[in-house]
Design a protein around this nucleic acid. Structure first.
Lengths: 339, 339
DNA sequence: GTGAAAGCGCTAACAT
DNA sequence: ATGTTAGCGCTTTCAC
């Protein structure tokens, strides 16, 4: 088993496969990447040799030679937020079985960290990028615009750089607020944690709807910069009721908060929905199983992930082939027992 | 700006930095990787040139030449299970700021898929690997044993291949079961979803404890192969009570299930803990905020992640330097209101 | 402490 | 349809 190489992890290379199959290296390469353009006969010989030697391509060599890696970057603001774990799952399921790897970057709700990650990811020459916001720093946005690979921005509709998949977050909050109004609640509050730009905008949408029907009361709006959690949801409701005890409904900026608020209400023997209505946002699985079941604006998180990766893969496979470059997946106001 | 290269993404290379700094390429490389061995003067010139040109190393070229990438593989059985999102966070926080990227592989609780992922990851020549089980296929285990990089197995203690960080899962379940017994419950049940090998072993531990004090009743043990969720937790409790209505306590194999069981109890107006005690496993944040607050065996998920990545980075930096190669992080039985 | 030469394993760009 | 040649941008090896 003579090998010319210096040290030699004796892992077989393309050249090894080529000589074993009696063809040239490039034919092996083509057999792997586009079997269609190789003759039946050569293909069989090559495949046999690959199987026999147990050959696996070296992605680093491929990336270097082709100037494009098989990495797909996915930038998310949080790893713990259930919202993104659903998106993740959609993306991973869609990448499954392709030659691409997903690499997650967590920018912890910091546009500056996001910019750094964009830089880092781009230096890997990714095949594509999925980013979870429209709120990049100017420099971050510039980097994305100049990127030599397709980019999908997810979660929202709006001013996208290349492609986008999301839904109208403001309309979704408005739907929640209107639902509360339509159910007859007249003194609605709003609680939100982690006031990132998107959360801010959603609060704005809530203000718009409540102001439009003369129900806006700033005393009923409670926010905190802390990360969202069930515990925080309880605290926020506690403070809200301390400030405005006659509040009769509360729109929660996500499910954790809503569950926390529901539990706090239980602790205080406040009847939901009779004394207080609770409307959630996102609608993770748990929401519908609470007692009472939480009404919620359901958002298509999983679908966003799978659609985003699908668009990206299509565009990587055939640049320019994706015609529907901005997809609005919509949302749904689901009324359950809590309102 | 003449460049000899063929197409030319005109991204600066090591050679560009070298000529700008008036040194050789290898000196630039050394300045980046081990600044200590480069003269003060050279180092300054190089750093200045790097900054001026905006140079970023090409990881693919580096991986190819050094036969080792800056990827750290992390194999998990699930992306949605909250248990692993905490582990993830620990790992990501620890990798933050290093030159390494974490790449997650999801094997969906399938040892066969895990084996495939081990193969795929290994073909990337990762700097290290973190794997979430001890239950590889024989071939998977062989691959890991032969891997040219450090490996950390997480979640459990036991028969590890290289290094491990976890806790004694069986002792943890036993602690939960004993807690129930000590509180005076005499007819304890057990519910579990997703019966992967680890869940099976935990059920075994529950059987051991209850059998030892004559309380084992197979009619009170309910499992399903479906993925764990709050909804499933409710169903399982429902079925358990249909089969064995006098059950006075239930050990849940994780938090989702416990929350679901708690909600099902509320729906049926069963008083927790008076008529039925509920003990949870893992203790995600939400558990302590339920009404009543859930007693739980708390497991150190986040710490497992951060410790695993720390060990891995140490070992990558200086092979053989990690002396404590098998870490038991313990667990804690936290009694709250539900028992 | 620094450098020159020689690849790492693959693919792009031409041939044929 | 297949092959030849020449790198991709870095690190290793060995010499200075």
């Amino acid at each position: 088993m003579a090998r010319k190489s210096r040290a030699g992890s004796n892992r077989p290379t393309l050249a090894d496969v080529a000589s074993a199959a009696g063809v040239s290296a490039i034919t092996v390469s083509r057999t792997i990447r586009s079997p269609g353009i190789v003759s039946e006969k050569a293909r069989r010989k090559v495949q046999e040799a690959i199987a026999r030697l147990g050959y696996t391509p070296d992605p680093a060599a491929s990336a270097l030679a082709s100037r494009s890696s098989s990495t797909i970057g996915l930038l998310v603001p949080s790893l713990t937020n259930n919202v993104f774990s659903d998106v993740l799952r959609g993306v991973y399921d869609g990448a499954q079985g392709t030659r691409f790897f997903v690499q997650i970057g967590n920018y912890r709700y910091s546009a500056l960290e996001e910019e750094g990650l964009i830089r880092t990811f781009l230096s890997q020459r990714p095949a594509g990028l999925i980013v979870s916001s429209m709120d990049q720093t100017p420099e971050g946005r510039r980097l994305l615009q100049a990127a030599p690979c397709p980019i999908v921005q997810i979660m929202e509709t709006g001013d996208a750089i290349d492609m986008s998949v999301g839904f109208d977050q403001l309309a979704a909050v408005r739907a929640g607020a209107r639902h509360l109004r339509d159910r007859g609640y007249r003194r609605p509050g709003f609680i939100s944690a982690r006031m990132d730009p998107r959360a801010q905008r959603r609060l704005g949408a809530f203000r718009d709807v409540t102001a439009a029907c003369g129900q806006l009361d700033e005393a009923r709006i409670l926010t905190t910069p802390q990360p969202s959690s069930v515990g925080i949801g309880g605290h926020l409701l506690e403070q809200l009721l301390a400030r405005a005890p006659d509040t009769d409904a509360v729109m929660c900026n996500n499910d954790d908060l809503a569950v926390g608020a529901l539990m706090e209400a239980a602790r205080r023997h406040i009847k939901v929905p009779d004394q207080l209505a609770i409307c959630s946002y996102n609608d993770i699985e748990m929401a519908r199983h609470m007692v009472p079941a939480l009404s919620a604006v359901a958002t298509p998180r999983r679908e966003i992930g799978s659609r985003a990766i699908a668009m990206l893969l299509d565009e990587i496979g055939a640049p320019g082939s994706v015609t529907e470059r901005h997809v609005d997946l919509g949302f749904e106001m689901i009324a359950r027992e809590s309102t």
